[in-house]
Each structure stands twice: as structure tokens, then as C-alpha cells.
Design a protein around this nucleic acid. Structure first.
Lengths: 231, 231
DNA sequence: GGCAAAATGTGATATATATCACAGTTCGAT
DNA sequence: ATCGAACTGTGATATATATCACATTTTGCC
């Protein structure tokens, strides 16, 4: 339940990054459209789930709540992202709750449809393996970051994750987040108290690393942000 | 670079859990044996890597060091575990350093051998996807745990991870770790200071959740330990 | 356009954990 | 079997972050 590719950013076309055109066409054909209103829940953690979803438009968040009631955001995902793909591959229940942040159009691919597709075209297996491998790498890095990086760094890391899910690269190289995100969301991603997220974000704004345009965050200095997030 | 299956524990046979006999035989045939002396390094993080390794005997640790020089242990793995499988699937460099904790016998499967195998028998693809999916679930859980659980809980979680890599279930239900592990290692897994790991471990020993036999840790109350590690 | 509800900023504490400083213990190599 | 090195236990402090308690601003909605 994470970003679907490093350094994507482009938001226009139909096929998600990493997916070649032919595979995409097969996918689109086998999948069925689903619509979501803002704040609607696609599925809950613990539900049994069949298949995965591809976001055609809109944005969602994936979250879990811990025993003490804290909401922890795993990711915020936009167009082109794939969600719920773990349930494709094993029979465990959904590991996170997915909620629409604004109206969404999705494509739903059932498990059986996926395997029909993949068996017919083993390239699909390779793509899927690659995708999972990438996510696993990101996830491992997150684990390390979590333990060895300060609040400021974890906030920075959250912004880079947001950028991968929602970012739109501007002509001048800045990255604009195409969805409103609250401090609580960011705090939930970084695993810090909302108040401290507020302080850290303001430091970044003051330092010119982040900016705001019309209530949306923008990343003014992506490399600087990356350095801060470095493990 | 993590445990290869929930609730395994059995250590005798040859095929790693989840891998059916036929697949295993093909694997063994295509792979080449490698030996490692204690403390020898199999590969470093950042190396370019070809293929994966299966542990036939011995134990290894997978670790990364963060920018500030802290060593972070991702896992300690024993017989039957698969390591380095991420490099099978993409062309990124090794994400962790793997070091032998004692003399090891491994099997090495190159990338090309893997794909030859898998293309001939798509079942292998499904197995690999399942394995990765499981690791991704574990990893996601780790991320959440890291942020929302106290030192004691993270230590407990480290012991359950150790048990999956090294545990041997006794007749009476206790789990014995088949490898000496230092407090520094455990602290490195939990991402806490060694001194505090010491205190937490002693609390667990005093509480009877853990025990020691001849310098090896044993898990006396696996369910209790699980509760403490719960997110 | 106005108003309740949500989100934000910021100081003053409280607390968990890291860090420092050692002394005691165990281990492994000669 | 001995001795040095690595590992361990435990207090005393330092520090980062959470928590509490608000005033202030923004947002979304009837």
C-alpha cells in the first residue's frame, strides 16, 4: 500500500508507471469500474478482500489504527496508483483501511481475473514481482528511517512519500501536491504528535524547502527535502 | 530480508516452508553451493547482486547502517530462509549487508537460473509473489509498530522475529533460539539504545516471559510475548 | 455571507528514551 | 587455565518528543 514508482510525477496518461501499454489494455478490459464519493471507505483493515484497484482519478489514503487508537497513515495515493494488491497474492484479510479523499474513479480487478491474465501473459507476473520488490525496498527503508531519524526528518520523508503519491512536477522543477493534506495526516504518516508536526512543517516552510500555494503544499527544494529524509 | 514464513519453527527438512517438493528439487538442481565462515560477509549493502541464497545450515544477520553510524538489524535468519531475493526481481543494488553468525552452507540461485525455472513452471512465480506479499505485510506492520509501541513492546517484537528466524519449538511449547544473540543485536533490531534493551529484556526475564538456557534465550510464553508486541 | 466545526500555532509542562559513566561478568583465544 | 576483550547491569543525567491548554485562523456548509 505504497507509492507505485519512484520518480513518477506525471499524471496525465492512463497506464500506471511501469505498466506497458499491452498489459494495461488487458487490465482495463478485465477490470470493472467503481466510483467512490469523498470520505467513502473502499474497504476496512480486516475485511476479506478480493483483488486490487487501480486509481483512474481522485485520491485515497491508506491507514491503520493501532491498539491505542492512533491513526497511522501508510500512504496517500493518487492517479495511477495500485491499491490492495497484497490480497491478490495471498488470502489474508486487508491490512489497511482505504478511504477516498475526494471523489474517485477506480478499476477493480478480481483475483481470478488477475490470474487468468497473468497465466496468459507471464510478463504480468514479472511486472507484479517488480512492483512488490520495489515496495518492499521502500518499506524496509521506512523501518530504518523510523528508528534512526528525528521528527524533522520523518516529516521530510512523509512529504517525499506524498509527492510520490500526489506530486505534480511543475515546469520550474517544484513539486505541487494535488490534494489538500492536513497536519494531522502528515503527523499520522510520520508517526509524531500533531503539534510537533506543525512545528516541523513550519520550520520547513520558513527554510523555504516547502511552500504553499492556495492551501496546497509545494516542495520547493526536492533535493534538500531528500537530504533531510536520508537515513 | 525477513522471516520466510509465519509460524514455521520446524527446522529439520530440506525445503523451506511454503515451497512444495517439486519446486524445491528444481531449485536445488539449478543452484550452486556456497560456504561461509563465521563472521564472513556474504554481500554488502550497495553491492550489485545477482540472485538469491537459501540457507541450508547456519545462521546469518541482515543489517544496514544509518548515516549516523548506527547498525540496524533487519533480521536474523536460520535454516530454510531465503535471502537476497529482492535483487532477483529488479536491478537495484543489495539493500542490506548479510553476515554469517556461524559457519553456513548456502545455495546460490542466479537471476537467470531463477527465470529459467519460473518460466518453465509458473507455479514458481506464484510462490514468489506469495512470499513477497507476506514479507510486505510483515514490513508494513513493523512500520506501524515502530511508531506506536513502547521500548518493551519493540523488544518483544524483536524476539518474535528472532523466533521466526531461529526458533525451535520444544515439546512443551517453549521456543528455543538456536543461536546466541547479544543485547546489542536485539537493541539493533528494536531500534533502541543497548542499555534500555538490557533493562527491557531483564523485565521480560523477571516476568517469566523469556528464559535463558545455557546462554541461549528461550521464549517461555509466546502468547504473552505476542500481546506485548501487538500494535 | 455568516457561523459552527475543523485545523492550526505556540507556550508550558511531563515523560520516555538516549546518553554517560562505570563496575561486574562472561567468553574466547592462546 | 588465564587473561584481555566483549558483553552486561544499573545508576545519574540530558534531551527529544508527547501531552496539555489554550487563542487564532481557516474551511465548509446552510
Amino acid at each position: 500500500m505504497r507509492q507505485e514508482s519512484k520518480r513518477s510525477g506525471k499524471k496525465s496518461g492512463k497506464p500506471p508507471a511501469l505498466m506497458p501499454w499491452r498489459a494495461w489494455r488487458a487490465f482495463a478490459k478485465a477490470a470493472v469500474p467503481v466510483e467512490l464519493r469523498a470520505k467513502e471507505i473502499l474497504f476496512h483493515a480486516g475485511d476479506e478482500g478480493d483483488g486490487c484497484y487501480l486509481i483512474r482519478s481522485g485520491a485515497v489514503k491508506a491507514s491503520v489504527v493501532s491498539v491505542d487508537g492512533q491513526e497511522r497513515l501508510l500512504a496517500v495515493l493518487g492517479e495511477g496508483a495500485l491499491i490492495g494488491e497484497l490480497a491478490l497474492l495471498d488470502d489474508e484479510p486487508r491490512s489497511a483501511t482505504v478511504t477516498a479523499l475526494r471523489p474517485c474513479r477506480l478499476l477493480h480487478l478480481t483475483k481470478s481475473a488477475f490470474f487468468r491474465l497473468a497465466d496468459a501473459n507471464p510478463l504480468i507476473y514479472r511486472l507484479a514481482l517488480r512492483l512488490l520488490a520495489q515496495r518492499l525496498r521502500d518499506s524496509n527503508e521506512s523501518v530504518v528511517a523510523q528508528g534512526s531519524v528525528t521528527v524533522q526528518g520523518r516529516i521530510a520523508r512523509s512529504f517525499t512519500a506524498l509527492a510520490e503519491g500526489l506530486g505534480q512536477v511543475q515546469a520550474d522543477g517544484r513539486i505541487l501536491l494535488t490534494q489538500r493534506v492536513t497536519q494531522s495526516d502528515i503527523a499520522g504518516m510520520a508517526g509524531v504528535a500533531r503539534e510537533n508536526a506543525s512545528r516541523a512543517i513550519n520550520d520547513l516552510l520558513r527554510g523555504g524547502v516547502l511552500g504553499r500555494v492556495k492551501g496546497f503544499y509545494s516542495i520547493e527544494k526536492p533535493e534538500k527535502l531528500g537530504d533531510l529524509a536520508e537515513v
